[in-house]
Design a protein around this nucleic acid. Structure first.
Length: 255
DNA sequence: GAGTATGTTATATG
DNA sequence: GCATATAACATACT
């Protein structure tokens, strides 16, 4: 989605300035983005998992939104957002990364495959094949949800989307991966694709998701979107899961 | 003030 | 290597 946003506003645009407003979020630190990219044209964008890459011909600007990052396109020079951390000034306005919590990261990367290898990222969640997915997940003895969130296994699934995928497949987040059938794993892989693509298609506006989606109202104590039960939360792998106790049977009660 | 939050990384333990 | 737990990062909100 962030990628589409950048495409929409920036493609073909010339870079007039790159202003780093938070050095802590700059990674790697050694690059002067301005020297490197001013005068260049946005050739395209790429993505791997949660990482966005803006192609400037001689290299990329990498952006990771972290927990609270968001991209904005400001047409007026005087326009500001509340927590501006990076400003890329282009012909038609400025692409701005706003991030109150500053968990996001940005910086220069030479090439995308190199970045993926360096960070040890797994295959992209929208590109991974059934076979790859089963091979990477199916022999693990841990709970399924932390594996879905492990960017080294597959890249691109976050906490909320993991909850959605598991909810739709009626799998408990603590279900043991190698106790799931290969067929179930294949269905999970497919569901990851459909959930991510559906979310992209509504511009990640969860209120526009189809009925039956957990993310429309992921609220503990709220109604399950498909049955009469009430949503609960559980700590799994150090993260909060929201799930329906009726739809997603606990692994101890599952055969 | 306490608790929680869409993510990643480091550290420790078994 | 694998699995799990905890803390840290920095800030906003309830």
């Amino acid at each position: 989605m962030a990628r589409r946003f950048v495409d929409l506003h920036s493609l073909g645009g010339r870079v007039w300035g790159v202003k780093v407003l938070d050095q802590k979020m700059l990674d790697p630190k050694t690059d002067d983005l301005s020297d490197r990219f001013v005068g260049r044209t946005v050739q395209g964008t790429a993505r791997h998992g949660k990482n966005l890459f803006i192609d400037l011909g001689t290299g990329y600007i990498h952006i990771h939104l972290g927990m609270s990052g968001s991209l904005h396109f400001l047409k007026g020079q005087e326009e500001r957002t509340g927590h501006e951390r990076l400003r890329i000034t282009l012909d038609r306005g400025a692409l701005v990364l706003d991030d109150p919590r500053r968990f996001g990261r940005f910086g220069h990367v030479r090439d995308v495959p190199g970045f993926v290898a360096e960070k040890g990222l797994g295959p992209d969640a929208l590109s991974i094949t059934d076979d790859e997915f089963v091979a990477r997940i199916g022999n693990r003895r841990g709970a399924i949800k932390p594996l879905l969130l492990d960017q080294g296994i597959l890249a691109g699934v976050g906490n909320l989307y993991a909850d959605e995928v598991l909810f739709q497949e009626k799998v408990h987040p603590r279900a043991i991966a190698n106790e799931l059938s290969a067929r179930k794993l294949v269905k999970l892989r497919g569901r990851i694709g459909s959930v991510l693509n559906t979310s992209i298609s509504v511009g990640t506006d969860f209120s526009r998701l189809p009925s039956g989606y957990l993310l429309r109202q992921r609220e503990v104590g709220g109604p399950c979107p498909v049955c009469v039960d009430v949503l609960i939360s559980a700590q799994v792998g150090g993260r909060t899961s929201v799930l329906c106790p009726s739809c997603q049977m606990s692994p101890s009660h599952d055969h």
